[in-house]
Design a protein around this nucleic acid. Structure first.
Lengths: 338, 338
DNA sequence: CGGAGGACGTTATACGTAAAACCTAGGCGG
DNA sequence: CCGCCTAGGTTTTACGTATAACGTCCTCCG
């Protein structure tokens, strides 16, 4: 409270405590065992408290050569899902003294399309969702440690990948629906080029291919309730035997399917079973509640961060996909008599 | 591609281009008009490109004394709303060469309850939502430029405030409902101590107080669909004449009210009108679609960031609350005969 | 033809921190 | 009583950048 209006530095603290700047750094950095007496240490801490001293992060980062900050690249934050991923990642990060800065989607943020420029921070590593595909090339340029989320393990050029076990999720959905007796399926697919959605399509086709007498129609829509509604409406209005079950890539698409069904006068689950994927708040808000595959977004973020920390520390990242599980609610039932 | 594995510095670029480090800084910082010839400038740029040079942000921040990074403090990201706020803030920030780092909610992130420690970055300013109230004391400690979102202008100790015109939103809701003929109201309130929710309660009471023959019952619930459902159910089960309209502090609460209504066998909007506030994706997913007050989250974030930029540059921030507007959908109708 | 600028750079320095290298008593074993 | 160790510090340096202050030539005008 003496120098003026500029923030106090470690030198100011040193002066106030009557020691050298080095001593301050030692004490505040907890490196003083056997180097500084307990009494002076306390004096330093006292002075720091009184001045309201906060170390200058920029200077520390420069000195240390790292920033304990990582970048999380995600698509636009239009659902709770990636908010959950962020929360999980940030939690683990905080436990290890790291910060997480977000780079949400190349579109919509502004002219600076360069994640590294726009995330104004010096970075130690990157976690990137494969859905933010166009940011990838920029990222690969730098040689920062990289963890890919929801990404093809084979196509990630050696980057560590952390994935949800979507394949198993789709398996659970199809087992459930086939077990109920459904045979004619509509796949309401997300209109996004991303590995995680390819997996859904592939596994669904593979599963149904194993069962004779099944049919599978696919229709694509952007992830928006209204787009999903219109796509579903036209698909259902087509001639021929109507599908009895709609498998959606995502809960929002499922909400669109609900609206289409209402417009067409079809009742869920009596005339039509619908499944989602995500388990957003939306899933239990609609009526009937949605049978869907629950993805643990926070765990996903945690695992991503843990993997990145492992890479940064030269350890081997944990192997294995993150389990997901079907939660059966009121939107699925046996098909009515054909 | 020569020095080894460590990142190239401006000195490496200088050496490669055969100039001094200062020249590199001049050229890359666009301060070279009349100081460096176009040919050498191009040589420098070329060298920088070849080496894949990126300036060390930590060093730059140290030198410059600022970081062009601001902190956005928000409650947990459990709806799209604050994701929108972030997106808007980040867009404006990017246009001005700023980065935004997020500090979501003191709970849930980890042991580091200090926003400044956990947001590992050196900061130039802070935008804070009043809903993250417990972080505030920590923030007030530092004397960073501060913009408060959704906060009592009178109680913000001189910090700049940017607010949505919630008062007008509630006015629109009550006008709409009163116009339809409703007289008995239930206020489903968010169980959060925050100015923005107090405003809702206050304005609603004031508005109805002006109209003789109206009644207002209030019930509080945490912002979760299930909590809202049970709270609503018990409120509606109480004896006495049943409310004909439920005004909810938020769309999620409204979704809970829907479920309560279904359980009690009440039809919306025939037996019960319901209004929300936010206009989340949820609002159009439920049936009937929700009459609600649309809050432009991105604009909110933009205005917050613009205000902070104004403060940082010593300009006067733009005055005036952000307009909101009622969007009437299927969840409101005249009350059935008393 | 002398010197006053421009054009084109370079040298030197400071930002605040962490930590290696160095200093100085005092105590103590041999 | 010498040498060495240890406790308790201090001096010094480096991190990479931006920029103020300082040199050169070369040109051109009076």
């Amino acid at each position: 409270m003496a120098t003026g209006s500029t923030r106090p530095t470690s030198r100011d603290v040193a002066q106030a405590a009557g020691v050298s700047q080095a001593a301050v750094s030692l004490v505040l950095g907890d490196k003083w065992r056997g180097r500084v007496s307990e009494t002076t240490a306390e004096r330093v801490r006292q002075a720091a408290r009184e001045l309201g001293y906060r170390p200058n992060l920029a200077a520390r980062n420069l000195r240390l050569g790292h920033t304990r900050t990582v970048l999380l690249v995600v698509p636009a934050l239009t659902t709770e899902f990636f908010a959950g991923v962020y929360t999980g990642a940030a939690r683990i990060a905080a436990q290890h003294g790291f910060g997480v800065v977000l780079y949400p989607s190349p579109e919509g943020i502004g002219p600076a399309r360069d994640p590294f420029a726009s995330a104004q921070a010096a970075l130690d590593g990157v976690i990137a969702s494969s859905m933010a595909a166009d940011a990838l090339t920029a990222i690969r340029g730098d040689q920062l440690p990289l963890v890919m989320l929801d990404s093809d393990p084979a196509g990630s050029h050696g980057a560590t990948t952390v994935n949800l076990d979507i394949t198993d999720g789709i398996r659970q959905v199809t087992d459930h629906l086939l077990g109920l007796g459904h045979r004619r399926f509509l796949h309401l697919a997300a209109d996004i080029a991303s590995w995680t959605f390819e997996v859904r399509a592939h596994e669904l086709a593979a599963r149904l291919g194993d069962v004779p007498g099944t049919s599978l129609l696919t229709v694509r829509a952007p992830i928006s309730i209204d787009d999903a509604r219109t796509a579903t409406e036209t698909a259902l209005a087509a001639k021929g035997p109507r599908p009895t079950a709609i498998v959606c890539d995502d809960d929002k698409l499922a909400a669109g399917a609900y609206k289409a069904a209402r417009r067409l006068g079809l009742r869920i689950p009596d005339d039509l079973s619908v499944t989602g994927l995500d388990d957003l708040a939306l899933a239990t808000a609609i009526d009937p509640e949605l049978t869907t595959v629950r993805l643990d977004a926070e765990l996903f973020g945690e695992r991503g961060m843990q993997a990145l920390l492992a890479v940064l520390e030269g350890r081997e990242p944990q192997q294995g996909d993150i389990p997901v599980h079907l939660v059966v609610r009121g939107s699925t039932a046996p098909p009515s008599a054909p």
